[in-house]
Simulated assay, not measured.
Amino acid sequence: MYRFSFVLVLLFLVGCMADGGKVTVREVLKNNPTADIFQYNGFVYSNVTELDWFNDKKENYKKNSLVGEIKKKSTRVLGFKDLTATTLPVGTKIYTTSENEDDVGILIVEYEGKDMYFMRLLEG
C-alpha cells in the first residue's frame, strides 16, 4: 500500500514534462519524509530505479558524462541546495544519460557499484 501511494504521489509530481514547473524539496519531503532525492541545477530528482513502471525503460539509459558529485547529505529543507541528497552519501557520482547537456530528465547515480536512476520532478 505504501509503495502504491508513493507511486501515485510521484506520478502527480512528475506530471506533464513539457510544463517546466519546478517541484520543491519542501513539497516532496512534506508528502514523503523518507524520499530518496537530490537537487541538481535547481531541480529535484527522485529515485525511480525500483519502480515497476520504470523497469522496462532502464535499458534506454546509459551513463554519459559526469555532471557532479553529492556534496551534502540532509533531510532538512533549509539549506537543501544543488548536489544535496537525502540518502546518497557525499561523493556519489552523478551522470547524464544524453550527449545533449540540456537533456537531464533522467540522471544516473553510481552507488555501491550499481547504477541508480533518478527522474527530474516537474509539476503537472
Rank of each mutant, 00 (worst) to 15 (best):
R3Q: 12
F4C: 09
S5K: 15
S5P: 06
F6T: 11
F6C: 11
L8Y: 15
L10Y: 10
L10E: 06
L10C: 03
L11S: 06
L13H: 13
G15T: 02
A18P: 08
G20S: 07
G21D: 15
K22M: 00
T24K: 02
V25S: 01
V25L: 09
R26N: 08
L29Y: 01
N32R: 14
N32Y: 09
N32W: 09
T34G: 04
A35T: 05
D36Q: 12
F38L: 06
Q39V: 01
Y40I: 09
Y40C: 11
N41P: 09
N41G: 03
N41R: 10
N41Y: 15
G42N: 05
F43S: 00
F43I: 05
V44H: 09
S46W: 03
S46K: 04
N47S: 10
V48Q: 01
L51G: 12
D52N: 13
F54N: 00
D56L: 05
D56Y: 04
K57D: 01
K58A: 07
N60I: 07
K62R: 13
K62A: 09
K63F: 03
K63Q: 10
K63W: 10
K63C: 11
K63L: 13
N64F: 05
N64V: 12
S65Y: 15
S65L: 13
S65A: 11
K71V: 01
K71D: 11
K72Q: 10
V77F: 03
D82C: 10
L83T: 09
T84D: 07
T84W: 04
L88V: 08
L88M: 09
P89E: 14
G91W: 02
G91N: 01
T92A: 08
T92P: 02
K93P: 03
K93I: 07
I94K: 02
I94D: 06
I94N: 02
Y95S: 10
T96R: 14
T97N: 14
E99W: 10
E99L: 12
E101P: 12
E101A: 09
D102P: 10
D102V: 13
V104H: 15
G105R: 01
I106V: 05
I108N: 03
I108D: 04
Y111E: 11
Y111N: 09
E112V: 08
G113I: 07
K114P: 04
D115R: 13
M116C: 03
Y117Q: 08
Y117C: 06
F118S: 00
F118M: 00
M119K: 03
M119F: 09
R120P: 05
R120M: 06
L121M: 01
E123V: 03
E123H: 15
G124A: 12
